[in-house]
């Protein structure tokens, strides 16, 4: 028996992402979860700078374009004055993990009751594919043309594992959009993150391994394969910090 499938009204607009970009799938999942949790009239998105900014153009919801990297801080201010509103930051890896690593870590450190969605495509998409702190060793980017030299530039780090291991956060997970199965699993992660916030459990982060066909120089289907073959071995999928009620159950 088939199910009704309809893009939520919240984001039912043309978006200007490149063909095959993972952002579109993630945004739809977030919107589906918001509808299922009946939050569509109770939501604010502090949006990062980068390709994540493009969300602002198509979304029919309150959102604020934050200074580069500062979405977690903006979200903090929002949540503290309107604790009953659901606050979701939507950021890329460059925004959240490079220029915004301080704000991102400190929001997790405070266990701020917000949900952070980070789209990790291992490069700076908007500015044309420069190296990110999440670029893999030997990955070619426009600022690592011979491949990333980890000896000189550092090793890519795993943010959800980091905050799950070091901080008192509510929920931390990593998913991807490479297959229907993974998309469905990612939706469960996002829903858990939002539920954690709505229940006042604290900080939740969902990182998404997402393709950047344009800057990777691959067609969309090949880009998905690249995630399966190269990214997932370095960035394992799964839940790194589960919600307390789930653990008890």
């Amino acid at each position: 028996m088939a199910k009704e499938r309809k893009v939520p009204a919240l984001i039912d607009n043309p978006m200007s992402f490149c063909a095959g970009c993972g952002h579109g799938i993630v945004i739809r999942l977030v919107a589906e979860c918001i509808e299922e949790l009946n939050q569509q009239d109770n939501i604010i998105f502090p949006i990062g700078v980068g390709c994540s900014s493009l969300l602002g153009g198509g979304m029919v919801a309150d959102r604020l374009h934050c200074p580069h990297g500062r979405a977690a801080s903006v979200a903090t201010g929002m949540k503290r004055v309107t604790p009953d509103t659901t606050i979701i930051t939507y950021q890329g890896d460059g925004d959240a993990y490079n220029i915004g690593i301080s704000e991102s870590l400190n929001a997790a450190y405070r266990n701020e009751n917000i949900t952070v969605i980070t789209i990790n495509n291992t490069n700076f998409g908007m500015t044309g594919g420069q190296m990110s702190w999440t670029s893999l060793p030997d990955q070619k980017t426009t600022t690592s043309p011979k491949g990333r030299d980890s000896g000189a530039t550092g090793l890519p780090f795993r943010f959800p594992e980091m905050v799950a291991g070091q901080f008192d956060v509510a929920y931390a997970a990593r998913g991807t959009v490479t297959s229907p199965k993974n998309v469905n699993k990612l939706k469960k992660y996002i829903k858990n993150g939002l539920e954690a916030q709505i229940n006042g459990e604290g900080y939740s982060i969902i990182e998404v391994l997402s393709p950047c066909p344009t800057n990777w120089g691959l067609n969309p289907v090949k880009a998905m394969e690249q995630i399966e073959e190269q990214l997932i071995p370095y960035y394992p999928l799964g839940v790194f910090k589960n919600r307390k009620e789930k653990q008890d159950a």
């Binding site: 088939a2 009704e4 499938r5 893009v7 043309p14 992402f17 579109g24 799938i25 739809r28 998309v183």
Partner: peptide
């Protein structure tokens, strides 16, 4: 088409909808 909705699931651009 078997109306399984996988196209909806994988489409980044909101092209597909399955209506009952």
């Amino acid at each position: 088409c078997i109306r399984c909705g996988i196209c909806y699931t994988m489409c980044p651009d909101g092209v597909y909808a399955i209506a009952i």
